[in-house]
Nucleic acid binder design. Sequence first.
DNA 1: TTTGGCATGTAAGCCGTTACATGATTTA
DNA 2: TAAATCATGTAACGGCTTACATGCCAAA
Lengths: 183, 183
Amino acid sequence: MAQKNILKYIILGLLNREDLAGYDIKKLFEEELGDFWYSNHSQIYPELRRMEDDGLISSRTELVGKKLEKKFYQITKDGQKLLSAWMDESLNPLVPTRDEFTMKLYLLDSADHPLVTRLFQEEIARHEEKYQYLQTRWQLLFADESEQQKHFGHRCILEQAILREKQRLDWLHRELKKIKKTN
Amino acid sequence: MAQKNILKYIILGLLNREDLAGYDIKKLFEEELGDFWYSNHSQIYPELRRMEDDGLISSRTELVGKKLEKKFYQITKDGQKLLSAWMDESLNPLVPTRDEFTMKLYLLDSADHPLVTRLFQEEIARHEEKYQYLQTRWQLLFADESEQQKHFGHRCILEQAILREKQRLDWLHRELKKIKKTN
DNA sequence: TTTGGCATGTAAGCCGTTACATGATTTA
DNA sequence: TAAATCATGTAACGGCTTACATGCCAAA
């Protein structure tokens, strides 16, 4: 059984707000949700088909231009029932994070190891980049105060992601300083 | 290809410090590393076998009691080479977190929804429990100052995990307060 | 003597990634 | 008109979880 198929419920949740095509869902993951959930299109399309077979969603086709077909899905009554059951359910157990940086640090097993500094610098650089990107995005989307109240969910995710990066960076810088002192 | 087989390198890193049996590795994941890496024993044992077939590790058997056999693995020269190559390599791209709580919150799409408060309370409760557990563990292991200098890696992981839980809890409490005000 | 922990495996199957594949539309 | 983006799929495979399975040892 492996993990619960949570993607299914997330798709239901998205379709519960508006009709979407597979491509739209993919875009949402890339541009809005990706920091807390992500699926590739190669997982999305087959899932949509299965969900339609199961009667959780239905589809209609619209033309883009003259030939290109876009398949919009809408949630059904059954889908809504299943969605609200999931919403009512208690959360699944926390899955353990898998953090390659921390494991490397753990395995070096000493603050003196010559690789430690480089490891920190690499981790700092990648989080710095991400942090900058997220900040730019926030400016773009929510700097205008009239937008503050709208997009509750989107803002919630983006701000959480920004905070997470900031806290990570702070910790990394603190630890690196400590390490440099002892050497 | 999916993900890189990082478990392999972690096992190598562990065996590079001391000989271990599969069960010992399992125990390490459960008691020491679990917050930043975890694998089930059903993944560990076959992996060890493959690694031995590939000449990265070798094994010897010791008796526990009169009949029970325990298979200790040690790292080979080839294993050490591969380990140090991995250590020198740059980190793999960050994998996106999958966070069911945040997705549910996102999908409720409003601070007013009756489920929001319950959702927060549930998330707070589970992180509170974890936080308490981790704190107890720190006390147990590192309260004695003579232990402070030892176990660099273990302490690093435990303290990181504690900080993460604390920051998460702080955020949850802050947001919950905000939400209650607007209602 | 029973219970819990030690110790090592195998099998089925889902989740997710990577790669393969194709074609239309829009934009620079 | 070329490049980027829109749009939808399939195939192969590895990682990981869950469940099945067995037996020994130590401690209460």
